[in-house]
Design a protein around this nucleic acid. Structure first.
Length: 298
RNA sequence: GGUGGGGUGGCCGAGUGGCUAAUGGCAGCAGACUGUAAAUCUGCCGGGCUUCGCCCUACGUAGGUUCGAAUCCUACCCCCACCA
């Protein structure tokens, strides 16, 4: 598992590793799953994708919602396929929850009726955060807070399954698929900030706004699940006349920095397993060599 | 040159005599995280310390009034608008 914040250089290191082993990459990225948004989600380039087989990139349309659970199931499949081919699966990504879902397993989610879920969501949308939290706490006294999204999730599960969310979480987990070995890439904040700033400017130059405009032109709503990512959001704001064009790159830089910071926090505290931490300011080939030196095939 | 408005903590911006180290917001830092996670939240945020408290430095600059001033007065500097 190769993890770390955005723009830290995970792809470059993965490619360097590919020079040493016959490997295939399993992406753990909640945004690169969406087709079309190549620039906005900073996908590996076509050339990079051609060099090493990738899984988990471009698997659905921006109008559809994905989930950590769907990801975990799919990724487990890709991994066993890769092994079946006698090759080495390397999970690369920055979405902490997806990594956890895959490596540690989520709780066994009871079946929730999709239609009533959608109907319920319609109702919940109209409520204030305070109301949602109050309701969630009543349904599930152990509800831990965390704002709108988590309160909604808690209410949905409690109502549609008949049991509070924390009950399910205490009960069985999905099967734990793997014994993870994590390589965490990180870089000093100033370096990371610089890389992020440069990448944001490049995105706009390479046609981010046009890319988003063409996706919107296909009829996707501005709030479609695939379109609320960093970079996309800002482009949509510009296209809707809510922000001057010359502030787009700067706004993307700021949100990306904040996101990268949250990722650093996650990878600093939330990983469970063997962890090798590396300074990503070093050249990818050198990092790959160091990873190789620590790698002990099981 | 004249008239009017304004100069507040990294930035924006409240605050017109004590309740003000100074409401808010942004940025930053730290943290949480079990199926929307590039999401959703929480804490800290002038400096220092023996940090439920104490000390220092702060509201353009310099003086003054007052028991007490970011808030009132005077002079000066700078910015903006309009008039010449």
């Amino acid at each position: 598992m190769l993890v770390g914040p955005t723009a830290v250089g995970k792809t470059a290191v993965a490619l360097a590793l590919a020079a040493r082993w016959p490997l295939e990459v399993v992406s753990a990225d909640s945004r690169q799953v969406y087709r079309r948004l190549d620039i906005g989600t900073a996908k590996p380039t076509r050339r990079e994708l051609a060099l090493v087989p990738h899984h988990g990139v471009d698997v659905l349309d921006p109008g559809h919602r994905y989930s950590a659970g769907r990801y975990a199931a799919a990724a487990a499949g890709w991994i066993s396929d890769i092994r079946g081919r006698g090759r080495l699966p390397v999970v690369v990504g920055g979405t902490g929850l997806y990594v956890r879902a895959l490596m540690e397993g989520l709780f066994r989610e009871p079946p929730l009726d999709a239609r009533s879920r959608q109907a319920l969501e319609g109702v919940l949308e109209g409520l204030t955060v305070a109301e949602l939290v109050r309701w969630a706490s009543r349904l599930d006294p152990a509800h831990g807070g965390g704002g709108r999204q988590r309160a909604m999730r808690s209410i949905e599960v409690a109502l549609l399954s008949g049991r509070p969310l924390t009950h399910w979480q205490r009960a069985a987990r999905e099967q734990r698929h793997f014994e993870p070995w994590y390589v965490v890439l990180s870089a000093p904040r100033p370096v990371l900030h610089q890389r992020i700033e440069r990448r944001a400017a490049e995105m706009v130059q390479r046609g981010l706004i046009e890319e988003v405009a063409s996706v919107l032109a296909e009829g996707h709503a501005a709030h479609a699940p695939g379109l609320d990512g960093i970079g996309i959001k800002e482009a949509v704001e510009y296209l809707h006349g809510e922000r001057p064009r010359d502030t787009v790159a700067e706004a993307i830089t700021v949100s990306t920095r904040q996101y990268a910071k949250r990722q650093e926090t996650w990878f600093r505290h939330q990983l469970d397993g063997d962890v090798l931490r590396l300074d990503a300011t070093r050249p990818p080939a050198e990092l790959a060599a160091e990873i190789a030196a620590h790698w002990s095939p099981t």
